[in-house]
């Protein structure tokens, strides 16, 4: 299969990656090759009845008691922040939309 320029740009946008013109070119080529190769899993034929594996561990109900643990002091929480204002993490305005 091959990935079109538009597909590459769409995926880059979903992933919040800004690609240079060069990278768009390179990625559509490289990703096409990678997906050609990963599609070799289709040689395995029908896997309809196979359960997908999300976890190899047979753990269930790993639950935590509802007991408070200490939080970080504000200055520690903010210590690595690139930009701080009013006790919070300052970000450029999201503008309209964009949320979930």
């Amino acid at each position: 299969m091959s990935l079109s320029r538009d597909q590459v740009l769409h995926v880059a946008r979903l992933a919040r990656l800004e690609l240079s013109e060069d990278e768009v070119e390179r990625f559509s080529d490289e990703l096409s090759k990678v997906f050609d190769w990963v599609e070799t899993i289709n040689e395995l034929g029908d896997l309809e009845d196979v359960e997908p594996t999300s976890h190899v561990v047979a753990v269930e109900n790993a639950l935590r008691a509802d007991e408070p643990a200490p939080s970080l002091p504000q200055e520690v929480a903010l210590a690595a922040a690139p930009d701080v204002a009013q006790g919070g993490f300052r970000v450029p305005s999201p503008g309209a939309g964009g949320g979930g």
């Binding site: 009013q86 919070g88 300052r90």
Partner: peptide, 19 residues
């Protein structure tokens, strides 16, 4: 997200603060 008013402008664009 708290949207900052004029005081929160950085380089001419509005800013927000995340708590």
């Amino acid at each position: 997200l708290v949207h900052l008013g004029e005081s929160g402008r950085i380089h001419g664009s509005e800013a927000s603060v995340v708590d």
